[in-house]
Design a protein around this nucleic acid. Structure first.
Lengths: 261, 261
DNA sequence: AAGTGGTCTAGACCACTTT
DNA sequence: AAGTGGTCTAGACCACTTC
C-alpha cells in the first residue's frame, strides 16, 4: 500500500487519555500531515512542555504509517526546537526552564564573553486597556485587558536592560506582581509551567535610540546616552502573538549578538 | 553489509575531472562522513557556486553507500543553505547572485515594508597592512596585506549605511576599485563568481553609537545622531574568516530585523 | 532483557524536468 | 522515455537508557 498522498484516516486517540482530537489535513505528504497533527496536540496542551510524547513506534501505529514517516516529521520538529529527542529515553516537548534557556531569545552578550549573574527587578505591574498599537500587535480589541510589566535586568550588579512587556490579560488571568517577583529563572519558563503558554518563535526590530531623561534615570546612565531599542513580538503555536516587548539595552560593555547563515 | 560506523573507503574520483581528492574521516556515522566529503569538494572549488553536483545515485555509487544515506547528508546541507535541491533537475551549490540574495546578510529593512531601490557608492579603496585587530579577526599576520573598502549604501536616494570592509589581500589579488564600481548586484556574488570565495555564515555584533562629526558628514545626518554600529565577521568553509565589516546604520526609517526561534 | 531513538539498506512509486 | 529529487515502506542492527 503506497498511495499518492492519501490522507491519514486518523481518529487518533491515546488510549490513556480521553480528550477530543484532530482533523485530517488534505493532500499533503503524510509526514507533513503528521507534523500538523503533532503540532495540534502541542497547541491543545495535550502534550505539555517538558513531557514525554508517545514513541515513534506508538505514533506510527496510531497514525497507521511506517516508523520512518513519523521519524521524518519528528526530525523536522526537532530541528525547529519544538521537540527534543533523547536516545534511549524518548522524545520530549521542548522546555525553557534551564539556565541555558535564559539566552534563547535574549541576544545581549557581554563583550568579555564571561558568563554573568543576572538579577531582575520588577519596577511595575499593571492591568490596563490595550492601546491601539498593542491591541493590533497582540490581535486584541481596544477594550480588551492587557498586563503591563516594567522590569530592569541587572547583569553583574549593573543595570543593563529596561524592559516593557505587554501580555493579553485573559491568557494570564491569575498572574500577579508577587507571582513575578517570587519566580526564579526565565520568565518564559513561568509562562510554560503556570499558564501552558509556549513561545515558539519571535521577531525583533532593533533601532538606535537616545536615552530620554526619564529612561536615563531608570537605567542609571547619562541623559542622551546611546541605547538599543529592541521591539519583540513572540508567537505561540499557529502563529498566535502572545507577547509584545520593548527593551532598552545599554551596549557599553555588551552587544546584541546575531548569527547569520 | 551493515557495519557499525565503518569508514568510507572512498577514493572518489569523478571520472570526468581529474584532480586530487579527499581523506576519510574516522568513526562517525556514514552520512556525516559524506557531509564532510561533500564540504571538502565545495571548499576545494571542485564544485563551484551555482553548479550542479552529481546526482544522489551517482554519489551513492562513488561512496558505496545507499541512496538514502547520501540523501540524509544532502538534506542537512540543504537546510544549512549550502546546497539547493531542485526536483527533476538535481542538486546545486547555493549562490547569492539573485536580487533576493541581497538580503541574506543585510538585516536592515524599511519600516514601511516596501521594497526599495539600492545604490552603492564606493568612497574608498586601498591596500594596506593589517592592524592588530583586523589581522587577528582575519587570521593574518601584521605584515600581511589587506584591502580596505569604504562604501555608502543609498536606499531610495537616501544615504543609509556607511560600511567599512576589510578583506585578505592575497585572496583578492586582482580586485580593483574599477572592478567594484562596475559590478552590479550583491558584493558576495562578486566574491563567488570572480574569486571562488563563498561566505557560508557570519556573526554580527550590534551596538548603539553616537555619530561623530566626520561620520555624520559622510551620512548626511546631524552630529550626535544615534546609529547602529554593526560588526560582522564572515566565514567560508571550515570556519575560515574571509571578511570583516563594520557598518553604521541609520535607523530613522529602517530597523535591524531578526527572527528568533 | 526490553524499550527508545539513531543509522543504514533496498526497493517501490510519485512528481517534476528535460530530451 | 529517461533522469532527477520527493515520499513511503519494511526490516536490520547499533547505541543508549532503564528495569
Amino acid at each position: 500500500m503506497n498511495p499518492p498522498y492519501q490522507n491519514i484516516d486518523s481518529n487518533f486517540t491515546d488510549p490513556n487519555i480521553s480528550s477530543p482530537l484532530i482533523i485530517s489535513p488534505i493532500f499533503k505528504p503524510l509526514y507533513q500531515q503528521i507534523k500538523t497533527l503533532i503540532m495540534q496536540n502541542l497547541q491543545s496542551n495535550r502534550w505539555k512542555s517538558g513531557e514525554l510524547i508517545p514513541s515513534e513506534i506508538e505514533l506510527s501505529h496510531y497514525f497507521k504509517v511506517s516508523q520512518g514517516t513519523v521519524r521524518k516529521a519528528i526530525d523536522e520538529l526537532a530541528t525547529e526546537n519544538i521537540l527534543v529527542r533523547r536516545q534511549g529515553k524518548g522524545t520530549f516537548v521542548a522546555t525553557h526552564h534551564e539556565r541555558h534557556a535564559q539566552f534563547r531569545f535574549l541576544r545581549l552578550m557581554p563583550d568579555s564573553g564571561k558568563s554573568q549573574i543576572i538579577d531582575k527587578k520588577i519596577a511595575k505591574f499593571k492591568r490596563l486597556h490595550a492601546t491601539a498599537e498593542i491591541a493590533s500587535l497582540l490581535g486584541l480589541k481596544l477594550v480588551d485587558s492587557v498586563i503591563y510589566i516594567r522590569r530592569i535586568m541587572i547583569f553583574d550588579n549593573v543595570p543593563t536592560i529596561l524592559e516593557e512587556i505587554w501580555l493579553p490579560g485573559t491568557l494570564f488571568e491569575t498572574l500577579t506582581h508577587e507571582y513575578l517577583v517570587d519566580y526564579e529563572g526565565p520568565i518564559y519558563g513561568l509562562f510554560e509551567t503556570r499558564f501552558g503558554i509556549c513561545m515558539i518563535r519571535a521577531v525583533e526590530q532593533v533601532r538606535a535610540f537616545i536615552a530620554s531623561t526619564n529612561l536615563a534615570k531608570l537605567l542609571s546612565v547619562k541623559k542622551s546616552s546611546p541605547l538599543l531599542c529592541v521591539d519583540r513580538v513572540s508567537f505561540t503555536y499557529s502563529d498566535r502573538p502572545v507577547e509584545v516587548r520593548r527593551g532598552f539595552y545599554i551596549t557599553n560593555h555588551h552587544h546584541y549578538h546575531n548569527k547569520l547563515s
